[in-house]
Amino acid sequence: MDATAAAKVLLEVCGACKKDEKILIVTDPASLEVGKAFFFAAKDYPNRNMIVIEETGLHGTDPNPQACEAMLNADVIYGCTKFSLFHAPARRAAGAKGARFVNMVDYEMRMLESGGLFSDFYQLGDTCMKIAEILDGKDQCSIRTARGTDITCSIKGRKPNPQIGRSPKPGMVSSPPDVEMATCAVEGTANGVVYIDGSIPFPGLGLIKDAIKLTVQESRIVKIEGDQQAETLKKILTDINDPNAFIIGEIGLGLNPECSLSGSMLEDEGCGGTIHFACGDNRSFGGHTACKLHLDMVFKNPTMVVDGVTILDEGSVACCQER
Score class of each variant (00 low, 15 high):
residue 2 D to H: 12
residue 4 T to H: 11
residue 5 A to K: 15
residue 12 E to N: 15
residue 21 E to G: 01
residue 22 K to R: 15
residue 35 G to V: 02
residue 36 K to D: 06
residue 37 A to H: 00
residue 43 K to R: 15
residue 45 Y to S: 04
residue 45 Y to R: 01
residue 51 I to V: 13
residue 53 I to V: 12
residue 54 E to H: 11
residue 56 T to E: 09
residue 57 G to Q: 11
residue 60 G to P: 01
residue 62 D to V: 06
residue 64 N to C: 11
residue 65 P to T: 05
residue 65 P to C: 03
residue 66 Q to L: 13
residue 68 C to V: 08
residue 75 D to Y: 06
residue 84 S to V: 01
residue 92 R to H: 11
residue 94 A to M: 06
residue 99 A to E: 00
residue 100 R to F: 02
residue 104 M to A: 01
residue 107 Y to V: 05
residue 110 R to T: 09
residue 111 M to G: 00
residue 111 M to H: 14
residue 111 M to K: 11
residue 119 S to C: 04
residue 122 Y to G: 09
residue 124 L to M: 11
residue 125 G to T: 05
residue 126 D to Y: 12
residue 126 D to T: 10
residue 128 C to G: 02
residue 129 M to W: 00
residue 129 M to R: 15
residue 132 A to K: 03
residue 132 A to P: 01
residue 133 E to I: 01
residue 134 I to G: 00
residue 135 L to N: 02
residue 139 D to T: 10
residue 141 C to S: 13
residue 144 R to W: 04
residue 145 T to I: 05
residue 153 C to M: 15
residue 154 S to T: 07
residue 158 R to F: 12
residue 158 R to W: 08
residue 160 P to W: 01
residue 161 N to T: 12
residue 162 P to C: 03
residue 162 P to H: 01
residue 168 P to M: 00
residue 169 K to Q: 09
residue 171 G to Y: 00
residue 172 M to F: 14
residue 173 V to L: 15
residue 174 S to F: 00
residue 181 M to C: 11
residue 183 T to I: 12
residue 184 C to E: 11
residue 186 V to L: 13
residue 190 A to L: 13
residue 193 V to P: 03
residue 193 V to T: 14
residue 195 Y to W: 10
residue 199 S to R: 00
residue 200 I to C: 10
residue 203 P to K: 06
residue 204 G to A: 06
residue 210 D to E: 14
residue 212 I to F: 09
residue 214 L to A: 10
residue 214 L to P: 08
residue 215 T to N: 03
residue 217 Q to E: 15
residue 218 E to A: 15
residue 218 E to R: 15
residue 219 S to H: 08
residue 219 S to N: 08
residue 219 S to T: 05
residue 220 R to Q: 14
residue 224 I to E: 04
residue 230 A to P: 07
residue 231 E to R: 14
residue 233 L to Y: 09
residue 239 D to F: 06
residue 239 D to I: 07
residue 242 D to K: 01
residue 246 F to A: 08
residue 247 I to A: 07
residue 247 I to E: 08
residue 251 I to P: 03
residue 252 G to N: 09
residue 253 L to M: 15
residue 253 L to C: 07
residue 255 L to G: 03
residue 256 N to Q: 05
residue 257 P to I: 01
residue 262 S to Q: 06
residue 264 S to P: 01
residue 269 E to M: 06
residue 273 G to N: 00
residue 275 I to D: 02
residue 278 A to G: 10
residue 279 C to F: 08
residue 281 D to G: 02
residue 282 N to P: 08
residue 285 F to E: 12
residue 285 F to L: 12
residue 287 G to N: 15
residue 287 G to S: 12
residue 289 T to W: 03
residue 295 L to G: 07
residue 295 L to S: 10
residue 296 D to G: 03
residue 298 V to W: 05
residue 299 F to H: 04
residue 303 T to F: 12
residue 304 M to D: 07
residue 306 V to P: 04
residue 306 V to D: 06
residue 310 T to A: 01
residue 312 L to Q: 06
residue 312 L to A: 07
residue 315 G to N: 06
residue 315 G to K: 07
residue 316 S to E: 13
residue 319 C to S: 10
residue 319 C to Q: 04
residue 320 C to H: 08
residue 321 Q to N: 13
residue 322 E to L: 13
